[in-house]
Amino acid sequence: MNAYLHCLSHTPLVGYYDPAPEVLAEVEQTIAQARARIAAFDPELVVLFAPDHYNGFFYDVMPSFCLGVGCHAIGDFKSLAGPISVPAGLAETCAARLMEQDIDMAVSYCMQVDHGFAQPLEFLLGGLEARPVLPIFINGVAPPMPGFRRARLMGEAVGRFTRSLNQRVLFLGSGGLSHQPPVPELAKADAHMRDRLLGSGKQLPPDERQKRQSRTISAAKAFVQDQNSLYPLNPQWDNHFLDLLSDGQTETLDAMSNDQLSTLAGKSSHEIKTWVAAFAALSTFGGYRTEGRYYREIPEWIAGFASLSAAPSHE
């Protein structure tokens, strides 16, 4: 088997405001089982599709897609901090091949990322440097954003590139399903927040980062008490989305606009384009089968939380 996939929701709130013990145990067991499947696959290369939450990418320059030739995690919300193990030469070659396929892939030699990248590497592989990683950012929070079609085409191009390597490749997608935590918006920002969103937030002072984290925790606590205090979760849509992935029907999402997705599932649900890109990449290896599906609404984490693996069906 030359390819495997796992998509997993992330949350900055793990360990800060957790659900009931039995729910947390479910999630931990689900992740442990996925980690075991990945260990059995023994990937030689990991391609990680993940978003950012105004910790590494800002409106001074906001690409739709960016491949990190060099990459480090900042360790927000007690996620792992430090360098991610990127094979720089391979990343440069990948970016060049994607451009040849009409994919507008930005590159960064000092890409800064947050828990959206760090959590799947920690939870599923045991660390930021456990395996060689091609980290690919997909803008999922800062309009204008890429649509489903562009994410799918980019994922397919990445899949074609990795097929040529003759390596065991693990595709990871990182993102919540329906959710809308209190992420700032440029159109509604005051002067201070606007300055942060335009780039000064990349080096956020510790006290301000702590206040930002406290606001998120407080919002989660309020959401548990009143599901209308934030945009409500949409488990019906979330499970429909998982069905589409399982049935190999990601192309049917091409016609959905970004506004439609925001209305259905909240403004942060655009993170699911990381899942679409990962499944599109896997599809270039042929038909696939899914396994290990898990879904639960977890208001404590302000997320429709899901986990899903897949492997080529012909192997």
Rank of each mutant, 00 (worst) to 15 (best):
A255W: 06
P235D: 05
F171A: 07
G199I: 00
E251A: 15
Q225I: 10
I138A: 11
E297G: 11
N239K: 15
Y4V: 12
Q180W: 09
E297F: 09
A20R: 10
C7T: 07
A36V: 12
L165W: 07
P12R: 10
R296F: 06
A40I: 08
E129T: 14
H314Q: 15
M1C: 12
G175C: 07
G248N: 02
G116A: 13
R97E: 12
L165T: 01
R168M: 02
C94Q: 02
P144I: 11
V69C: 13
L128N: 08
Q260L: 12
S64V: 08
P19R: 00
L253K: 00
S313A: 15
P232G: 08
T250Y: 03
S79F: 00
G75D: 02
G116C: 10
M256S: 13
S85P: 11
R293P: 02
L124C: 06
C66T: 07
T162H: 06
L308E: 08
E208S: 13
G127D: 02
A96K: 13
M99Q: 15
P181K: 08
A32D: 03
S268T: 13
F305S: 07
A40K: 11
Y4S: 14
L233S: 06
K267W: 15
D104K: 14
D195V: 08
H10Q: 09
E129S: 15
L90F: 01
T216P: 05
D42N: 12
F77A: 05
M145D: 04
P146E: 05
N228C: 12
L242N: 08
D190M: 10
C71V: 06
Q167R: 14
E251C: 09
A220Y: 08
I272Q: 10
P144V: 05
G286P: 08
T274M: 00
K211D: 07
G89A: 13
F49W: 12
D190C: 08
A20P: 06
P87W: 04
D226I: 05
M193Q: 12
A34E: 00
S79K: 02
S108D: 10
A34K: 11
G248Q: 04
Q180S: 13
F161W: 04
K273V: 01
R168F: 04
D226Q: 09
A277P: 03
G292E: 02
W301T: 00
A81E: 03
E26N: 12
F58V: 05
L80V: 10
A303K: 01
V169N: 03
T162D: 01
H179F: 03
S246V: 09
P143F: 08
S283T: 08
S307I: 03
L172P: 01
C66R: 12
R150Q: 12
V169H: 03
S218A: 15
R37K: 13
A118E: 05
M99P: 10
P43L: 01
D254W: 04
G82T: 07
L13M: 05
L153P: 06
P51S: 02
G82S: 09
Q203E: 14
G199A: 04
L98E: 08
V183R: 04
Q112M: 05
L197W: 03
S283R: 03
A310C: 04
S9Q: 04
P21S: 02
A130V: 13
G155R: 01
F148N: 13
D247Q: 15
P143Y: 05
R196Y: 14
L67N: 06
G89I: 00
H6P: 01
T30H: 06
P120Y: 04
V14Y: 12
D243P: 03
D76R: 02
L261R: 07
D102Y: 14
